[in-house]
Write a protein that binds this DNA or RNA. Structure first.
Length: 113
DNA sequence: TGATTGACCAACT
DNA sequence: CAGTTGGCCAATC
């Protein structure tokens, strides 16, 4: 982990998000510690498109459960369709029952000293 | 080597 | 209640 670039760390966390779960940019930034802010996570997601690897970036939304980055998926509704495909209901670009689908890496991810 | 840029967040006006 | 501002900090220009 220490040898990875910041965005590679972000990718690692995003890949750990379970199917049908979502998290927020701020949560990932907080999980990575003082080395990252929420903006860095979003910026890393932007780079993940060019990263050639498959990153479930659609499972990362902002703090309000709003699909702010949906427009960067190559289409205005690609992100929403991906999330709905995982059983998540979205209305007006916002995740319904966001609290039920929320997955906090700080809570759910095992901390290995 | 500065200056700019963000798929954010919270506080402020 | 909508728009603005400051802070966050790594990568890019």
């Amino acid at each position: 982990m220490e040898d990875l670039y910041f965005f590679e760390k972000v990718y690692t966390v995003v890949r750990l998000i379970p199917y049908g779960k979502v998290t927020s940019y701020g949560a990932i930034a907080e999980f990575l510690g003082s080395k990252g802010s929420a903006r860095m996570v979003g910026w890393a997601m932007n780079k993940c498109i060019s990263h050639s690897e498959i990153i479930p970036a659609h499972r990362v939304v902002n703090r309000n459960g709003l699909l702010t980055g949906k427009h960067h998926f190559g289409g205005p509704n690609i992100m929403q369709q991906l999330l709905e495909n995982e059983g998540i209901t979205i209305i007006n670009n916002k995740i319904i029952n966001f609290d039920s689908h929320y997955w906090d890496p700080l809570k759910e991810l095992p901390l290995n000293h």
